[in-house]
Design a protein around this nucleic acid. Structure first.
Lengths: 192, 192
DNA sequence: TGTACATCAGTGAACGCGCGTTCACTGATGTAC
DNA sequence: TGTACATCAGTGAACGCGCGTTCACTGATGTAC
């Protein structure tokens, strides 16, 4: 049952997309290849026609997922100019929707600690995606020295990733909401 | 080979201590009970004489580890009064030593995302430990309204957890150092 | 353009392995008289 | 206080199961003439 080149490429993308969701939902170690392939509409044996190992898939998923988040936040921030855009981007990231749908969200908040245990290639790709996000924020920080804008954006990333991680761990829903809101206010104010 | 009550209690503590290190190093799912028991100097079969399941151990480890970090940061912060103490606590948390020794460090930074997938009991314990840390900082924030101090401390926690997570993922050592330093400066300044 | 053959995406069984958990057994500790 | 028996911490083999990976096979697609 050989498939056409186009269909093969689409299948590969489907596997990556399914993996991106599964990894963010259950973690990398917590996701089995059989379940993952089933989610992509295939049987597990076919996996190795697309990837040489699970690690190779992890690397590709990290790159794709981090870029998807960058694009999503960039799109959100670009709907408004300058600091209003930053506020929009921050609100999008620190929203309850993001908290309650980790499978579609930021990979650093979803499996950051696990990424720290992956190979250099994967971590380099995540680093690039992170710097991309820093660039989005710092470029819209009008009236700030470039160096100061970059530092502020870097801290903003840390606060956002940490706030999202904590908001998902905290059992008390109200406290979780408060963490998101307080962090968002603080991050937006840091650019003023 | 029955053991005395005292020795049994000490063995249990040894298992929890070994698990706390292993979980923070390899993640919860990434840690096998056999390896864990070997690290505690026992064979795997004896595990169930101390815990009814791996989940029960996870719950106990979370409580113990989060309190250990609270105690460590509190000790560090209490060596100096008020805001100087906050600066010391922040520096201790955001140090390279902490980054390079996750097995002894903050459980939120080490396995935060995995904790978000654990049962309510475990997450409640982590929440309490987090509020404990918030209390340490906000109580030393002299000259701040209590409400404002608490908010600032909450954001400080988010920034510290996020900065540590990111610093461990980032491949570039220099960038990693910069993230820690920039975040520390920002957190300390937020209390002024 | 049509035909013959090579390629290879996908299937599903099988591989060895480590997982969490159970169990029969051992022998030192704890308890009852 | 000393003795007999019950308890139970720890051992190591075994359980079923799912893991990542391999492989023989199928049949549609791609390629060469």
């Amino acid at each position: 049952m050989r498939k056409s080149k186009e269909e093969t490429a689409r299948t590969r993308e489907r596997i990556v997309a399914a993996a991106a969701e599964q990894f963010r939902t259950h973690g990398i170690v917590g996701t089995g290849l059989a379940d993952l392939m089933k989610a992509a509409g295939l049987t597990h044996g076919g996996f190795y026609k697309h990837f040489s190992s699970k690690d190779e898939l992890v690397s590709e998923v990290a790159a794709v997922a981090v870029n998807a988040t960058s694009a999503h936040i960039r799109k959100s921030a670009h709907t408004r100019p300058g600091k209003l855009g930053i506020a929009k981007g921050v609100a999008t990231y620190l929203s309850r929707q993001h908290r309650d749908a980790p499978e579609k969200g930021c990979i650093l908040a979803a499996i950051g600690a696990e990424l720290a245990r992956t190979d250099a290639k994967t971590r380099t790709e995540v680093t690039e995606g992170l710097l991309n996000l820093v660039e989005i924020f710092s470029s819209q920080a009008e009236g700030m020295q470039p160096d100061q804008a970059k530092k502020t954006a870097l801290v903003a990333m840390a606060t956002m990733v940490g706030a999202m991680t904590i908001a998902r761990v905290v059992e008390d829903k109200q406290l979780s909401d408060t963490i998101l809101k307080t962090a968002a206010d603080s991050v937006v104010r840091s650019f003023e």
